[in-house]
Design a binder for these strands. Structure first.
Lengths: 232, 232
DNA sequence: AAGGCTGATTGATAAAAGTCAATCATTCAG
DNA sequence: CTGAATGATTGACTTTTATCAATCAGCCTT
């Protein structure tokens, strides 16, 4: 296994506990490739030929229906996507495109399913990963159904703040138009939402966010670990 | 294993392939109980002590935040719920309540995790189940984010029609207020949505739905297997 | 058969969110 | 350094959805 990137993949929870042999044979069939920005890697509805691992860059998972489209999630290094489709040998439910120049490992789904049958540690890791994914989507669903767009924006800011270390100044990690789509609103409304949060001590200029009055914002946003926590 | 209900549970995909010994030991710790309607079985945020199996009746999975609540899904016999929380040993993300008099098997989560570690067939079945659950939520998410409420109602009717056999007359399987909540709208708007679908040949009286013009409705609803199919 | 309960519907209104068009800001290629 | 291109913002307006209040319908109990 000459490729040093495989060591990074090996460290992922998904692959760290499996037998050496099995990991090696998984990687033998895999290939790593560089993609420019804005390349559509997979298209929803197509058969799931590869499990993808983002090594560097970032990938947008999105979906389209009847001329509309929406961002479902962003995948950042190092993690996988399209695991559920791979396991079920079912069509992709989402499309994926690179947001920037990205390095991506492609592991044939067939191999993943074969090793999944052979390696119990791998199978267990997949369970944990899928349970995690499931719970993340449930949280997103609750966010969408229980909160207004202003509340979603407020809670997103608090999550992002925590993610960035917890200080009062931090950066948005999305393009705003895509953030709007992820949050289920239009870019115009996101702009207005940022303004609407000014009374709670929020300032957004460009990609830089300042939270002047943490208590005020939290009192409005009412963050809840059952919706907003990253783990568990 | 004296209890004949265990044979029904055994037939579930989740349990059908596991070793006899392991199934028996799972069931030894389990108990089956009757609950009246409108009983809250579990509350979000609590530790996941039991995997639940609905044997008869039906269960509403719902969630609450800041005084609002929303129905996430309905569980009907025979299937399980709260699998992801059980596996991850994490708090429930949703609450559950019986919709009617229901018979429910409770399997200690600890046992499920123990057997999961010991029985590879069981672990694999869990993977399949979780992948299925994950994909269902993704579909629901797409339904919510890509469609207006009128479109959601139209597509729900088409799904329900197919589920009921495909004929032009069928019954709603929810109370309307709960259907509204599942679809992410108010009961008032659901009423109006039914009226709004009259031009497409839809008649709803009480729980009875008639679709006079299948082609018209489908042309409006634009159902898509990547959102609306039950399987895969 | 008469209330009384619950859920459904309707109408009026308000709030939230989307659309369209114009303008502003920033970035980046030449 | 300039200007084209892209994304962000703003304002005016429309559409969608929610809210509130009243009424209606079905069903259950007595």
């Amino acid at each position: 296994m000459p490729n040093p990137e495989y060591q990074d993949i090996r460290k992922l929870d998904l692959f760290s506990q499996m037998a050496d042999d099995n990991f090696t044979s998984l990687m033998r069939g895999a290939y790593v490739q560089n993609f420019p920005a804005q390349i559509e890697l997979i298209t929803e509805g197509e058969p799931s030929d590869f499990l993808h691992v983002v090594i560097s860059g970032s990938v947008d998972l999105f979906s389209v229906w009847n001329g509309r489209d929406t961002s479902m999630a962003t995948v950042r290094p190092i993690s996988t996507f399209i695991l559920a489709a791979t396991i079920k040998d079912a069509p992709y439910l989402m499309s994926a495109r690179t947001l920037e120049k990205s390095r991506i490992a492609l592991i044939p789904s067939q191999d993943v399913r074969a090793i999944f049958d052979a390696d119990n540690n791998f199978a267990r890791a997949i369970v944990t990963e899928l349970a995690q994914c499931y719970r993340s989507v449930i949280k997103a669903q609750k966010d969408l159904k229980l909160r207004t767009s202003l509340e979603r924006v407020a809670n997103y800011l608090l999550r992002q703040q925590r993610h960035a270390g917890g200080g009062p100044v931090f950066a948005l990690d999305f393009e705003k138009r895509r953030l709007a789509s992820v949050l289920g609103m239009t870019p115009e409304n996101l702009s207005r939402a940022f303004k609407g949060l000014q009374p709670y001590g929020v300032k957004v200029t460009g990609t830089r966010v300042t939270i002047d009055n943490q208590a005020d914002l939290e009192n409005f946003a009412k963050p809840n670990p059952l919706i907003d926590s990253f783990k568990s």
